[in-house]
Each structure stands twice: as C-alpha cells, then as structure tokens.
Amino acid sequence: MESLLVSTGVVALAEIGDKTQLLAFLLAARFKKPVPIILGILAATLANHGLAGALGAWITATLSPGVLRWILGLSFLGMAAWTLIPDEIDEDETQISQRFGVFGATLVTFFLAEMGDKTQIATVAMAAHYPNPLLVVAGTTLGMLIADVPAVFIGDKLAKRIPMRLVHGIAALMFAALGLATLLGAGAALGF
C-alpha cells in the first residue's frame, strides 16, 4: 500500500506546473470537451507509465541489489533537482488535433509529452524501488489524474492561485527523502 500512496503523492505534487498539466490547460481551453480530454489523459498515462513500470521491474530483476540501490538513490536525488525546474509546453504538441479528434489528440500529445518526463522517470525509479510495480503504476496514474483533471475543469484560474514554488519544493523534498533513504539502505529489508 505504501507504494501506491507514495507514488500517488509524489507524482501529484510533481505534476503541478509540469508541461502535461499545462497541456491539459491548453487542451481544455481549445476544445472545451472535458470527458474526451480526461479519457485521453487516462489512456496515455496508463500506457506510458505501464511501460515505465515494466522497465522498472526489469531493472530490478537485472541489476544487483547494491548497484540498484545506488542508481535508484541517485535517480531520486536527480528527480528532486529536476522537479525544481519549471516546464514549458511546445505549441507543436497541440497541433495533432486536426487528425485525431479531441480524445486522439489528448492521447497522442500526453503520451509523447510524458516520454522522458520527470513523472515517467519517477515511475521507472519507484517501480524498481517497490516490490509491486502495478501498484506504482496505479499510483502514478492516479497522481497524474489528481493534478490534471482539475486543470481540465478549472484551467488557468486554478493555476494562478497555486503556489508553484512551494508545491515543487515539497515534491523535491519527497524525491530527496526517497533518494537519501535508498542510499542509506532503508530498502535493505526489501533486498535493495
């Protein structure tokens, strides 16, 4: 259960102000059709984070516990630093809608926007850290929805009232705590 709760919380916080949340704002403003946008976000996140979770599980099975501990610890610390850097959205990511409709545009743009994004990398790291990658994927997907669904309905009004620096700081602290705990052997009981 810890893997579900931690991955949900970390990703929900890290996603606030992230480029995919900005993409949700933009798609909602452009199309004004929340249901296909939300379904597109859900499908894209499940696919993207499912692949990330599988990669994390593969890494766990492939690497020795000592090497894995160092890679994971340093990855979490890197995620802490990366979380403090604000994202920008590329206008080209929203031009796909002419071919695929609202759901398809959301699915494609969210999937591509998440490739190599901090929440995808965090999903890989947490899936490698926790024994049940499916709970991690469920948690990271839930975290994405917690951050992005309100963006679809409330849009820019919400974004202007959220203290982004504070939220990113809290997410960075959570990633740093995971990194330090991993490096100091907190996962030793799990074989890391």
Rank of each mutant, 00 (worst) to 15 (best):
P36V: 02
L107Q: 02
A113Q: 00
H49C: 00
F153H: 10
Q21G: 04
S97P: 08
H168I: 00
G17H: 04
K19Q: 12
A122L: 11
T62M: 14
R161P: 01
T83V: 06
T140Y: 00
I96N: 06
A181G: 12
I121E: 03
W82N: 09
G17A: 05
V11M: 09
G56V: 00
E88I: 00
N48H: 05
F192Q: 13
L51M: 15
W58R: 09
V137S: 04
L46M: 15
E93Q: 12
G169D: 07
M115Q: 13
M174T: 02
M174H: 00
D90Y: 11
D87Y: 07
V124C: 05
G155H: 09
Q21V: 10
L158S: 09
M1K: 11
K33V: 11
A125T: 05
L55E: 07
G191E: 10
K32T: 12
V149R: 00
L184K: 11
V136C: 02
T20G: 03
A176T: 04
L27R: 07
A54S: 15
I121P: 03
A159I: 01
G78Y: 06
T45Q: 03
I71L: 10
T123C: 13
I59P: 02
F175R: 00
I38S: 13
L5Y: 13
A128S: 10
A189G: 11
A61I: 07
G143W: 00
L46V: 15
V167K: 07
P133S: 02
M164Y: 09
V136L: 14
A14C: 06
L46N: 03
L13Y: 04
A128Q: 00
L134S: 14
R30S: 10
L178V: 04
T141H: 00
T141K: 00
L74S: 08
T83H: 05
F111L: 05
A81F: 09
T60P: 07
V35R: 12
I38T: 10
G104F: 02
P36M: 08
E15K: 05
A151S: 14
T106F: 06
T8L: 10
L183G: 04
G101A: 10
L42I: 15
L134W: 14
F192Y: 11
G40D: 00
L77E: 10
P86A: 06
P133K: 03
R99L: 13
L51R: 08
S97A: 15
L39T: 07
L72I: 05
L134D: 08
G78C: 09
A14Q: 00
H129M: 14
R69G: 02
I146H: 03
R69V: 05
F153A: 12
L13V: 05
A186P: 08
I41V: 15
I85Q: 15
E91D: 15
A14E: 04
I89Q: 05
A122D: 08
L183R: 04
G104T: 14
A24W: 07
M164L: 11
Q120V: 04
A80N: 09
L135H: 12
Q21F: 06
F111Y: 10
F153G: 07
A54K: 06
L135I: 03
L173M: 12
L184I: 04
A80I: 03
